[in-house]
Amino acid sequence: MANLEKTLRKENNLSEKQLTKENNLILTDMIVYLHSSNLCEYDIEIIRKELIGMALEAQLREEGLSTVVGEDYKAFCDELIKNGRKKTSYETVLEFLYVVVFGGGALFFYEIIKNIIMVVSKKGLTNSVLDLPISWGFVVSFVCAILFAYGIFTFVSKNSFELTDSKLHKFLFIVGFTIIFVGIGFSRYFFDRFILSTINILIPIAIWIVGFIVVKILSDKHLNDLARTH
């Protein structure tokens, strides 16, 4: 089933290329900021389409985006957030599952590939290549990576306007990111020797495939229903 939100996003990406550099920067900050809110994802993409349209028409009238939405972009976005449709509980759960399946899946696949390379380089191609040791290092870094990814996303989206303008915010972002990256590296280094359990790599792969199919079908169906009734 095609996802109509993806189609809309592709259309928006294409239209956005016609924007001036300045309008493009402003619009990106606005959309990133809107993503920090609890506005419905599909509605944000619709708002993006409308704002691109307004900006393009303003360009044709030889005006900037600021003459259309005012100088205070954050206040304009706050008005949209206040007045727009909020995510339902079902949409929040779907989004959470999406992050778990794709974010968690990526971390598991990294672990599986790393383990296969290590086993093959030490023992050659044996049956033990299918064994995946789950260490405390992996569990700690897995939880931290998910939490920090969420933290970084929240920080970037809530501070999108400041990150474009303020060097302090950029500095804080880089320092924070480095601390997280080094912290995860240390947790792997110190805790990887403590093995909780060893599982067959086919188990997480099977769980991921089932999770992926279920989340994709539910998500696409919901977004298409929204697109039809919008």
């Binding site: 708002i47 409308e50 307004m54 003459t67 259309v68 939405v69 005012g70 304009f76 008005e79 949209l80 206040k82 007045n83 727009g84």
Partner: peptide, 10 residues
């Protein structure tokens, strides 16, 4: 401006 009425239209 359009920025005033757009949130109201939403």
């Amino acid at each position: 401006s359009e920025g005033t009425i757009y949130p109201l239209l939403v």
